[in-house]
């Protein structure tokens, strides 16, 4: 028998003994085994190996064993009681509510317009300009500030002639 053919068949023998080859390969292996005494001997060695593995008989463990195990089962660190599953959505809702309350307290939503139309005439003069500038500067830091009022306030900062200010 050609050694190259044995080298091809030998690694397949264990798969052959466990039924792990496809039909066409099984045919090739059988054909080779019929002619090659060395490979046939190897097949017999594999089969004897399997025969040495004697089955075990299943027996019940001693009755008191579980008690000894249970004593050593400390609470699992990642373990959560079953009711915690229902607690999670409640915690989430409470957190969102708390954030919204905090937001409404510290961030004015829908602020009163910084400047109303009736205020505009009062902006004339240095004092009025300072006031408007302060309001505008504050408005930049307030993303929810009334943008329309802000635009009106900026327009009002355009130079206004003192004589136009009504007395």
């Amino acid at each position: 028998m050609k050694p190259t053919e044995c080298a091809k068949i030998l690694p397949m023998l264990a798969d052959y003994t466990v039924g792990g080859l496809d039909v066409s390969t099984v045919g090739q292996v059988r054909e080779h085994l019929a002619e090659c005494a060395d490979c046939h001997r190897e097949l017999e060695a594999l089969e004897r190996t399997a025969a040495l593995l004697t089955p075990i008989s299943q027996v019940e463990p001693p009755r008191q064993l579980w008690a000894g195990i249970e004593r050593q089962l400390e609470p699992r660190r990642t373990g959560r009681p079953a009711w915690s599953v229902y607690l999670r959505p409640a915690v989430a809702v409470a957190t969102v509510a708390a954030v919204l309350i905090a937001f409404s307290v510290f961030v004015p939503i829908g602020t009163t317009p910084i400047l109303s139309n009736s205020d505009l005439p009062l902006l004339a003069g240095a004092e009025g300009t300072d006031y408007a500038e302060t309001q505008i500067a504050a408005a930049w830091d307030q993303p929810l500030a009334d943008e329309v009022s802000l635009a009106l306030a900026m327009a009002a900062l355009e130079p206004v002639a003192p004589e136009e200010v009504p007395q």
């Binding site: 264990a14 003994t17 039924g19 060695a45 594999l46 190996t49 040495l52």
Partner: peptide
Amino acid sequence: VLSRLARGREALRRKLAPHVED
């Protein structure tokens, strides 16, 4: 499963050579 069984059987055959060879 079949592949692991086959590789296991090969390994055991090598380890138990004196008992399984002619």
